[in-house]
């Protein structure tokens, strides 16, 4: 018996001047054991811009984010269907190497998770395992540039050998961003990167995200609509495992076409 429900239609508003597509998703479904978390999500993510995923908790936005660099592989019993391409290359193709993929698509997590190593070693970790630095001086340079790009260098330059776990929450999160940058990824996925931070630290991280978009494609999942409005160019609204609406951020926030989007951004549920 297969009376499949009517196909879900995502409401899309294109940009005035569309960017080249970096990531393209087509009918992505995720099933955890017997529970379906995503019901066919299709979206194009433009390069060198910030795309925000918003929606109430449990709507599938983090799940979708984790599909983009195949972090769902690490969850036992998770199954992904559909197609995601990065620069036209299918990332779920069996030939594609997941290690290489993750080197190209970095990730920053909800809670800052510095390794219990020194600040330097935290940032140097990625370049070291990937063999990106030819010499010690090279490595130092990568670390310094990454920390600079993460706007953390000035705060920690005198204590690079101290443990990364000793930094404040906001500094830890910027350290994790620096760690991700050090591998020189093309895409950076951020899973609610500010949810564990205080407002001042949040502001710094948001500022950083805005700077980073000149060089990187950034996808950010956030609970806070203000944050989405502040940092992103495009916004996608998820609800109950569906991508309901996506479009330019100002358009979504000022003139949503879907009732549920409107309800959510005006705070009727969430």
């Amino acid at each position: 018996m297969s009376s499949s429900p009517a196909p879900f239609q995502t409401i899309r508003t294109p940009d005035a001047s569309p960017r080249p597509t970096k990531i393209h998703a087509d009918g992505v479904k995720v099933i955890y054991g017997t529970k379906q978390a995503l019901h066919g999500v299709s979206i194009d993510i433009g390069e060198k811009s910030v795309t925000a995923f918003i929606g109430p908790s449990g709507c599938g936005k983090s799940t979708f984010l984790r599909c983009i660099n195949r972090m769902n592989d690490t969850i036992v019993g998770a199954r992904v269907e559909g197609k995601i391409t990065l620069d036209g290359e299918d990332i779920y193709n069996t030939d594609l190497d997941v290690v290489e993929l993750r080197a190209r698509v970095g990730m920053v997590f909800q809670k800052p998770n510095p390794f219990p190593k020194s600040i330097f070693d935290n940032v140097a970790y990625g370049p070291r395992i990937h063999g990106l630095a030819k010499s010690k001086a090279d490595l130092e340079e990568i670390v310094v540039t990454s920390l600079q790009k993460a706007s953390l260098y000035n705060e920690v330059k005198d204590r690079l050998q101290e443990p990364g776990t000793g930094l404040s929450g906001g500094q830890q999160q910027r350290l994790c961003i620096a760690r991700a940058i050090a591998v020189s990824p093309e895409v950076i996925l951020m899973d609610e990167p500010c949810s564990a931070l205080d407002p001042i630290a949040t502001a710094k991280v948001e500022e950083l995200i805005d700077e980073l978009r000149t060089n990187y494609t950034i996808v950010i999942v956030t609970h806070s609509m203000q944050q989405a409005a502040r940092v992103s160019q495009r916004t996608a609204f998820f609800h109950l495992g569906h991508l309901v609406e996506e479009g330019p951020t100002d358009h979504i926030f000022t003139n949503p076409l879907e009732q549920r989007t409107q309800d959510y951004i005006t705070g009727r549920f969430g």
Partner: peptide
């Protein structure tokens, strides 16, 4: 060209990641 330079622009980073991660 040093590895650091390759870091500064994503285009070059792309090349690096495709060159050799010692996979």
């Amino acid at each position: 060209m040093t590895a650091t330079l390759s870091h500064n622009t994503p285009e070059q980073a792309l090349i690096v990641s495709h060159i050799d991660l010692g996979l």
